[in-house]
Amino acid sequence: MTVGHRTEFAGLPVHNFDPETPGPVDPERPGPVDPDRPGPVDPGKVAWRIATWEEDDNWEERPSPTFEARFEQFLDTVDPASVSALVLGSWGYAAFNTPPYAQLCAAADRLTGLRALFLGDMTSEECEISWIRQEDLTPVLEAYPALEVLRVRGSEANSAPVRLRPLRHRALRELAFETGGLPAELVRAVGDSDLPALTHLELWLGTEHYGGDATVEDLAPILSGTRLPALGYLGLRDAEIADPVAAALAGAPVVARLHTLDLSLGMLGDAGAAALLAGQPLTHLRRLDLHHHFVGEELAARLVEELPGVEIDLGEGMDPGDEDEYYVAVAE
């Protein structure tokens, strides 16, 4: 599956920051730029995307100097206090350059209105998802206590995985990690965090080959729901261990509070589907997303029949014949 650039984020259209047409507020022409009428942009009505990409960067293990300069130019050009949503794309070649999170944290006293943040909006042409160097995200969340949405793409398993320390964050409503392999340490940190406002949690667990070493036991604090009282959407996506996850969900206390359960993009097969049907009732769900799966026709039909009123996505069904041929949608 190709992971592309976001065109919308946090309910706003994504607008690429261009220092040639930066976009201060123009009361005569509010709102995003019309592509047929280039002109200013209202800073608060778009999600600003900042990116630079240098294919031949040297291995520096630091943010690209070009990106650092572009970010500072953005802060000096657009009223930072008016920015509510920010998308960071390539910070140089992300397989070499580490993310500019220290610079982002240092700007917290200027980006006082920031409520939504996407870190790593890159295509595979810019950097494969499992090559993107990440680091500890805890300082970012601590620097932005009013942040409501955080989405992160990428994790490099060997030397620069995505990390998080357990914390309490009162404002965060949506948290998502898009990876080809999510470290067990991060999964445990999410489960050990106090996130009382969180309504949307999305974890792309991935495969062990790319650092996805989380087990069902690592998910236990999340499945208990103890520290996630507001959770309505739970996505355990792109999972090599989709069948064991489904079996655990069959009796997990958190499921009773959900309106959406998302097990898409992974290796869900007949064993997982049967566990869902044999477990606690799921008829309260509004949506069950299983697209990209390896469930046979008989069990797929039973899911639809036994969950009336639930919107079930069984698209992209694969041949369930040979389990050795199963694969997740997003890996490298």
Rank of each mutant, 00 (worst) to 15 (best):
M1P: 11
M1I: 10
T2E: 07
T2K: 08
G4Q: 15
H5D: 09
R6Y: 09
T7Q: 14
E8N: 05
F9P: 00
A10I: 02
N16W: 03
T21D: 15
P24F: 02
E28Y: 13
R29Q: 10
P32F: 06
V33I: 09
D34I: 12
P38V: 06
P40H: 05
P43I: 00
W48Y: 03
R49Y: 10
I50G: 07
I50M: 12
W53L: 10
D57T: 11
E60D: 12
R62L: 09
F67P: 07
E68S: 11
R70D: 08
D76S: 12
D76G: 11
D76K: 13
D79S: 13
D79R: 14
P80C: 11
A81S: 12
A85G: 06
V87Q: 06
V87G: 12
G92T: 05
A94I: 07
A95S: 10
A95E: 11
Y101S: 03
Q103Y: 01
L114P: 00
F118E: 14
D121C: 12
E125T: 12
E128Q: 14
S130G: 04
W131S: 15
Q134R: 15
P145Q: 04
V149H: 11
V152L: 05
A157S: 13
S159Q: 15
A160L: 14
P161E: 01
P161I: 00
R163V: 05
P166M: 01
R168Y: 06
A171R: 14
L175G: 14
F177R: 07
T179E: 10
G180L: 02
L182D: 08
L182Y: 02
V187R: 14
G191I: 04
G191V: 01
D192R: 15
L198V: 08
T199D: 08
G206E: 05
G206I: 09
Y210A: 03
G211H: 02
G211S: 13
G212Q: 08
D213Y: 05
A214I: 03
A214F: 00
E217N: 11
L219N: 01
A220G: 04
S224V: 15
G225R: 14
L231R: 10
Y233M: 03
D238N: 15
A239L: 04
A239F: 11
I241L: 06
A242Q: 10
A242I: 01
D243T: 01
A246F: 00
A247D: 12
A248Q: 03
H259S: 15
D262Y: 01
L265A: 13
L265T: 07
M267E: 11
G272T: 13
G272V: 06
G272H: 07
A275M: 05
A278F: 00
P281A: 13
H284D: 08
L285Y: 04
L288I: 07
H291T: 09
H293N: 13
F294W: 02
V295W: 03
G296A: 13
G296I: 06
L299E: 10
R302E: 07
R302C: 03
E306A: 15
V310N: 04
L314W: 00
D319H: 09
E325I: 00
Y326T: 06
